[in-house]
């Protein structure tokens, strides 16, 4: 099973680094100023967003978003 992106909204400060780095362009800063996933099924699990997140707010989880 391929792991996909999960955002910890408590931790996210909405800096937008993950948004510019996502190769599938499936991350955005939402109206609450937090990163959110638009089409999770498109995630290829490259973990660029996770490793570049300065706030420990991105992790990889299973299909149901469980870590």
């Amino acid at each position: 099973m391929k792991l996909k992106v999960v955002i910890d909204r408590k931790m996210c400060k909405g800096c937008g680094i993950c948004v510019v780095l996502c190769p599938k362009k499936i991350l955005k800063i939402d109206e609450e100023g937090k990163a959110s996933v638009t089409e999770r099924q498109e995630c290829i699990g490259c973990r660029q967003c996770e490793f570049h997140c300065p706030d420990f707010a991105i992790l990889m989880g299973d299909d149901d978003g469980q870590l």
């Binding site: 408590k10 931790m11 400060k13 909405g14 800096c15 937008g16 680094i17 490793f51 570049h52 997140c53 300065p54 706030d55 420990f56 707010a57």
Partner: peptide, 18 residues
Amino acid sequence: KMPTMWCPGCGNGIVLQS
């Protein structure tokens, strides 16, 4: 102690994660 006191986008968190 989370979230950190660093500003949004501060590189320190990335270094700490590494």
